[in-house]
Design a protein around this nucleic acid. Structure first.
Lengths: 251, 251
DNA sequence: CCCATCTTGTGCGATATATGAACAAATGTC
DNA sequence: GACATTTGTTCATATATCGCACAAGATGGG
């Protein structure tokens, strides 16, 4: 790609949108400039553009995103049949298990939630479509990494900041690779409080008719409610059932 | 706003993202140019920029959006406490009613779904966070329009293409204004197959502690299952309960 | 197999944007 | 209430992008 095939104004604008988040629901020009590391004048123009197009509101001091911004993500969600397809199955799965059920895909070193059915809020983190978690310490992440050729999985782990979120988090690359082998063999991954204390989860791959892994499904539960060692016994049959039902339907 | 405070490259890029959708999950440069009504060279640069940033994939012919694009909508969903807050209540509501439950806000002439819990898929249209429906013929739209000063509601109806989706759709502005008065008075809106034959729904406003309407909640049901005339009897108590539970929690 | 048609890639002049400094306004501090 | 800081805005100019026109390549009938 040539230098001139890159629209930096566009790239800068996208960076500005991403500056908004849970901790920063409203931003001043200076704040957005600090977060994005762009010039204040540049950020101002991007924000005014967003505001002019109705993607943001401006009260003279703070900018906030409007629901119109959801059109952008919606372009993906509606263009990809997967989220709509799995949603009703997740709903059923979630009701039957009495726990949250989710589906996600891999994006770089992270898993991205594309659909979710929650029974109650079990985590301090709030998950919804579009939410991201590091792949190495999430059950769906393990399943998705296990589906890759080992060299690719290694490559992703190398690019990941393997930090210990809890004392139980596995952070040694070799240990993780070994774990991925186990996951590949047994067909599911169990996470015991590696992401957050008190939370464990179990995931299976979602395959299409040709056997390609296109996503992962999981059930998350509070550790106080279900011990990690019981996860497979209690929820694996339900997950396998959903996996089998979806297999002929995806892609 | 001055002319030079607008970054047209950014605006054009956003338009390109929105070109993707249910009917157009994969686009060539020429297709995207036709949809957006932009010059091919411009669209090409935008698409290559998206691809370079990881928001899109390019196989040399087709561009597709990647899950990374969800970061943009996620910036709104996580920045706005509402979706996360109402989700567990919708889940409960959906289970109790045995029907789909949703929350939405108004964006121009449309309602935008910000959270949803579905029991099964009842509509030909697939709804999910970010989905949009015309406000005039949706139950949540009626509730949200009814919450506006009448002049504003009129203004929005004037900008709306009031088309008859079914023989039951109300399309006369005066009749709609009259209906909004009724909705305001009774505190809920019922839609009987005005959007799609076979689908009816009931919605209530979601107010904050100060009594401002911040969103709408609804339950949708197949007409074959529940007649529109029974909706209020069957589901209004559940909706009112949820409305009351959420009232002290929002904003 | 060839021609008509559609698509993609590229060079260039005209036009629009980014930059950083300077200034004005607002905010916070003592 | 005055000073110090931060923030928002403007401006001139260097730089980058836009859209057009054209070339090259791909596609699809007949």
């Amino acid at each position: 790609m040539r230098e001139t095939d890159f629209v930096s104004g566009f790239a800068r604008g996208l960076k500005v949108i991403e500056a908004f988040g849970e901790a920063q629901p409203r931003l001043t020009i200076a704040e957005a400039a600090k977060i994005t590391d762009l010039d204040r004048a540049t950020v101002r123009r991007s924000l005014l553009t967003l505001s002019e197009l109705g993607y943001a509101d401006y009260d003279g001091k703070f900018f906030t995103l409007t629901p119109k911004i959801l059109r952008l993500g919606h372009a993906y969600l509606s263009a990809t049949p997967l989220p709509a397809l799995v949603q009703p199955y997740l709903d059923q799965l979630s009701v039957k298990a009495g726990q949250s059920a989710s589906a996600s895909v891999l994006d770089g070193t992270e898993v991205v939630y594309v659909a979710r059915a929650s029974q109650r809020r079990v985590m301090s983190i709030n998950l919804m479509p579009g939410s991201r978690l590091p792949a190495y310490c999430a059950s769906m992440g393990r399943v998705l990494l296990a589906a890759l050729p080992e060299t690719e999985a290694r490559e992703i782990l190398k690019r990941t900041e393997l930090k210990a979120n809890t004392p139980l988090t596995k952070t040694d690359p070799e240990e993780l690779i070994e774990e991925l082998r186990r996951v590949r063999e047994q067909g599911y991954a169990v996470i015991d409080q590696e992401l957050e204390l008190g939370l464990c989860s179990i995931a299976v791959p979602l395959m299409n008719a040709r056997g390609q892994v296109v996503a992962a499904l999981n059930i998350g539960a509070p550790a106080a409610h279900v011990a990690a060692s019981e996860l497979a016994e209690r929820y694996l049959p339900l997950l396998k059932e959903t996996q089998a039902a979806l297999r002929p339907l995806v892609q």
